[in-house]
């Protein structure tokens, strides 16, 4: 297999890495670069646990080849925190008991972050729509929706 050299921005860091064209973005992040917040839940775009941001938009990293991100900016949950401090939306998720096992949390939080960037005051329906690609089997979703609604009202 012929390898390719790619350069991209990962969570504010410049990365240059040589990879095979068969490698997915998810595999590169987890196995080559040690960025573990994106998870593999279904490997075919159905569950959303592998969500990362590509140039500011959420994508399924299991359906993106690593070579495709050459020259782009990749942001994972690790990259949205400043100085290792939780963002207010992450804090709202803690305050609202929004996660149980926590496996879906990274993808869910990135989807919520994208929503709030596009629409700072979403209503319940808009939140449900925006999160509908991120599966959670534990919570029944309402604590997640509550966290976002609470966040839009400026916190508890």
């Amino acid at each position: 297999m012929k390898k390719k050299m790619i350069n991209f921005n990962l969570n504010g860091r410049k990365i240059a890495v040589e990879i095979e064209p068969q490698l997915t973005l998810l595999e590169m992040l987890r196995d080559r670069l040690g960025v573990k917040s994106p998870k593999c839940g279904c490997d075919r775009g159905d569950c959303g646990t592998c969500t990362v941001m590509l140039d500011g938009r959420t994508v399924r990293s299991c359906l993106v080849l690593a070579v495709e991100v050459d020259g782009l900016t990749v942001t994972t949950l690790e990259g949205i925190m400043k100085d290792d401090k939780l963002t207010p939306i992450q804090q709202a998720f803690i305050d609202n008991n929004s996660f149980q096992c926590g496996f879906c949390a990274p993808g869910m939080i990135l989807s919520a972050t994208e929503l709030l960037k596009k629409n700072p005051k979403p209503n319940k329906e808009e939140i449900q729509e925006a999160l509908s690609g991120n599966l959670c089997r534990c919570t029944g979703y309402s604590p997640i929706i509550d966290a976002i609604l609470e966040f839009t009202k400026g916190g508890k």
Binding site: L86, I94, G102, A105
Partner: peptide, 21 residues
Amino acid sequence: QSCVRIDGKVKVAGAAQFIDD
């Protein structure tokens, strides 16, 4: 008391380690 989960922070930070991590 409805104490806040003590594993909340590590989970919302995406830092909780699961088997494949």
